[in-house]
């Protein structure tokens, strides 16, 4: 490759990264800004990070988000994994039908899902944290299924039979042979459900009822009053958490590759 070509390709790559990460860099930058302004640099400060902890609104929204996210992603992982196992052992036509039905929540517009879930829930239960958890489970399950199913398909039936043949009870075979093969899929399904639940605004907004706020809906209500710099700090923390999680996952994969 000529020098000019190489330079141009680096320039292009640089531009891609700039457009991808510039907004987040601006956000991180502003979270350390000792001024309410979004355009003027007022010196370095950590005060927004400190005042985060004393802001009741933010702290309660954070608590709600953690509860809803953990509850919904754990339950969705259990449900989705069981569903994937069920679908795997179905007859071909039934499995295709089930997978089609699983696809619909993924493709459906969030706003339609949100409104229809709200209409359904109001008939049976007052809207609140519980209904948000139900809604989040509903849209997370497909992600878990699509992460677990390929692992099941690559697991050969003969391996399970080999375990039984060597004297394993069905439970022992599941723990020692099936689960280790399934686990990476279950984990990535769980992490995806976690991200989807953290991310969601539209469906949460319709199913949360009055008085309940997750971080995303709280940010939305704050927008009308003007965003406080504490929220930059909070967003920075959330971003760094996701970033560390991502690094960890890649790191683990690299170690596994090297072991082989």
């Amino acid at each position: 490759m000529t020098k000019a070509k190489k330079g141009a390709s680096y320039l292009y790559l640089g531009l891609v990264f700039l457009f991808l990460y510039a907004p987040i860099l601006v956000l991180i930058f502003l979270s350390f800004n000792n001024s309410m302004s979004r355009t003027v640099w007022g010196g370095f400060t950590l005060k927004w990070y400190l005042s985060l902890t004393s802001n009741d609104n933010i702290m309660s929204a954070l608590g709600t988000t953690i509860r809803i996210t953990l509850a919904s992603s754990i339950l969705a992982t259990i449900l989705g994994t069981s569903a994937a196992i069920g679908i795997h052992y179905m007859k071909k036509r039934h499995a295709a039908l089930m997978l089609g039905a699983t696809n619909i929540p993924l493709l459906n517009a969030d706003i339609v899902t949100g409104i229809s879930l709200m209409l359904l829930f109001t008939r049976f239960t007052p809207l609140g944290e519980f209904s948000v958890v139900l809604a989040h489970i509903a849209f997370s399950v497909p992600y878990v299924i699509f992460n677990v199913l390929p692992r099941l398909q690559s697991l050969s039936e003969a391996c399970i039979e080999a375990a039984l043949d060597l004297g394993a009870t069905p439970t022992y075979a599941f723990c020692k042979v099936v689960w280790p093969e399934l686990f990476p899929g279950v984990l990535s399904g769980f992490l995806m459900a976690l991200t989807m639940s953290l991310d969601d605004f539209t469906i949460t907004y319709f199913t949360k009822g009055a008085g309940v706020n997750t971080l995303s809906t709280m940010l939305y209500t704050q927008l009308r009053k003007g965003i406080q710099p504490e929220l930059y700090a909070l967003s920075t923390i959330l971003f760094l958490l996701a970033f560390v999680l991502l690094l960890l996952m890649n790191f683990k994969r690299d170690i596994k590759k090297e072991a082989k």
Partner: peptide, 13 residues
């Protein structure tokens, strides 16, 4: 009774 399977069926992990 033990079996040697056609596609080996060794445990990959």
């Amino acid at each position: 009774i033990n079996t040697v399977f056609q596609k080996y069926a060794l445990f990959p992990h």
